[in-house]
Design a binder for these strands. Structure first.
Length: 279
DNA sequence: CTTGTACCCTGACCGC
DNA sequence: TGCGGTCAGGGTACAA
């Protein structure tokens, strides 16, 4: 799935076009995209007739505020690996290459918001504002927030024995970092991904914190990384791929020391790193 | 509480 | 051209 920079890019794109639009009807192509027990009938009835507010994001979750007053809800979307959005007048724009319709939201102005998800690992549900806040409390800090400091990161890591890479991927510790940017940040910070998180010194945590933020900001500026499935709204793609130092570069020379980039499996996913530069 | 593993699902790609 | 194996920006349920 898209990580924080990709999800934020999608949020900003949608935010140009969605707030103020009223939902005229919902077509659910795959009921397994509805989470938390929502059925197409109940979901469609709950959403139809409400108007979207400005979109929000927390970690990798997108929130579409809907309705007013006591009827306020937040439509929560998890894109996971292959979720995408497009907006079109009658069908998804051809450049978006949507071949796996998931849920279509017909808007009262004649446009349609399309959610497409090849693997259907993503999903959508409807929360009360209080439930959205509860979810938010269960997530770690936003890494780009001012309140997220190197010291704070060190405090989070201190009691943990799990490998630092696994901790960066754990959304309860820090929200929004995924497999690409975890590898990239650890490489830039010169930290071995297998090190127990609690072993990092304050200085190392500060260095990692700095690189996490730098990398996420850089990726955000580039509108994300496009590898396989991710695309921003209507197919507009990200350019950060060219800036990746180690991710996906197994066997290539390390950009710093020229030694071959290694790969290992952590928490069921690939970690790319330089065994010489990362200690 | 923490940590690791299996699993959800489809498609792209590689070697034979 | 076909086939099997592997891998994929994620998160959750469950076991230890």
């Amino acid at each position: 799935m898209p990580e924080l920079p990709e999800v934020e890019t999608i949020r900003r794109d949608l935010n140009q076009q969605i707030p103020g639009a009223e939902v005229a009807g919902v077509l659910v192509h795959h009921r397994d995209l509805l989470l938390s027990g929502w059925t197409p009938g109940r979901f469609g009835a709950a959403v139809t007739g409400s108007v979207f507010g400005p979109l929000v994001r927390r970690g990798k979750f997108l929130g579409f505020p809907l309705g007013k007053g006591d009827a306020r809800r937040v439509m929560r979307v998890q894109l996971r690996m292959t979720g995408r959005f497009a907006i079109g007048a009658d069908s998804p724009p051809p450049e978006a290459g949507f071949r796996h319709p998931g849920i279509d939201f017909a808007l009262a102005d004649g446009r349609t918001l399309y959610y497409d998800d090849v693997r259907r690992l993503g999903g959508i549900d409807l929360l009360l504002p209080s439930e959205w806040r509860q979810m938010s409390r269960n997530l770690g800090p936003e890494p780009l927030a001012r309140s997220f400091t190197g010291k704070r990161l060190h405090t989070i890591l201190a009691p943990l024995k799990a490998p630092i890479k696994n901790v960066l991927l754990d959304q309860r510790r820090v929200a929004g970092i995924g497999n690409i940017y975890a590898s990239e940040a650890l490489f830039r910070a010169g930290i071995d991904p297998r090190r127990p998180a609690g072993e990092l010194t304050l200085d190392e945590a500060r260095g990692l914190h700095r690189w996490v933020r730098r990398i996420l900001r850089g990726a955000l500026e580039a509108r994300g990384t496009r590898l396989r499935d991710y695309q921003a709204v209507n197919g507009r793609s990200g350019r950060y791929r060219d800036k990746l130092r180690v991710y996906g570069r197994y066997g290539e020379p390390c950009p710093r020391c020229r030694r071959s980039i290694d790969r290992l499996n952590q928490a069921g996913r690939s970690t790319f790193f330089c065994p010489a530069c990362q200690r």
